[in-house]
């Protein structure tokens, strides 16, 4: 048992790690914002939208939630080009993140919409707002507030899941780790470092999401 952990390589490879962290944060930020936007649109469609569109959303949500993220990624990056849709690694990774989080957040946000008291819709209607205006101005914010903890957890899970984008050579943090360990032959130490960075990122992300919730929902008690 003479193995000595060695982190002497760290300073030399720090720039590589930092680049990787940058890409991971980028994926997370774009994926979270656009993914939640897509999820909101889908949730609206499922809960209140036109009848013909609902089964489409159900199919999308079920398909994504019941297949691994990596397969979705491979399908987008390797499969879609045969339909003539070419994408860079980073574009494919970003798209996969959006599509994936879109499905999960759809289900979560829909639950928030459905917990809205009927009186809120009726009050909006009686003030001559259209169903969409009522949804946007009246229903959405309290609905998001209701499900913000669940949505935050899901965003963290998706961020951690993004580690597999290195498998299509998108140059995120896990890609950086793979690259470094192929050079320094210190695989275990390299993955310890990258794992700890992910841990810090997920803790920070939780804080940021809590802060966003705090700013987004000035009134902390949502209507039941």
């Amino acid at each position: 048992m003479g193995y000595q952990l060695n982190f002497g390589w760290l300073p030399q490879y720090l720039p590589v790690l930092i680049d990787g962290i940058g890409v991971t944060i980028y994926l997370m930020a774009v994926g979270a914002v656009l993914g939640c936007l897509l999820g909101t649109v889908c949730a609206w469609t499922r809960a209140l939208g036109p009848n013909w569109a609902r089964p489409v959303v159900v199919a999308y949500v079920e398909l994504i939630r019941n297949t691994p993220f990596m397969i979705q990624l491979f399908f987008i990056f390797f499969g879609l080009p045969s339909l003539g849709v070419q994408m860079s690694e980073l574009e494919a990774a970003t798209l996969a993140m959006i599509v994936n989080l879109g499905a999960y957040s759809c289900e979560i946000i829909r639950a928030g919409i459905q917990a809205t008291p009927r009186g809120q819709f009726e009050a909006g209607a009686s003030l001559a707002m259209t169903p969409f205006e009522t949804f946007y101005h009246v229903v959405l914010i309290p609905a998001l507030q209701r499900i913000w903890p669940a949505l935050s957890s899901q965003i963290v899970i998706v961020m951690l899941g993004s580690a597999v984008v290195s498998q299509i050579a998108a140059q995120d943090l896990s890609y950086a780790a793979n690259f470094i360990q192929s050079r320094n032959f210190r695989a275990f130490e390299t993955y310890i470092v990258s794992t700890l960075i992910y841990l810090v990122l997920s803790i920070l992300l939780r804080q940021v999401l809590a802060g966003i919730g705090w700013a987004l929902f000035p009134k902390r008690k949502a209507a039941r």
């Binding site: 951690l160 580690a163 597999v164 896990s174 780790a177 695989a187 310890i192 794992t195 841990l199 997920s202």
Partner: peptide
């Protein structure tokens, strides 16, 4: 916290290379 706050992929790598260190 540790296992929910880090990617499963990293855990797999650590298990793979960590066990290897045990010879």
């Amino acid at each position: 916290e540790l296992f929910q706050g880090t990617p499963l992929l990293m855990q797999l790598f650590l298990a793979f290379f960590g066990l290897a260190l045990l010879g």
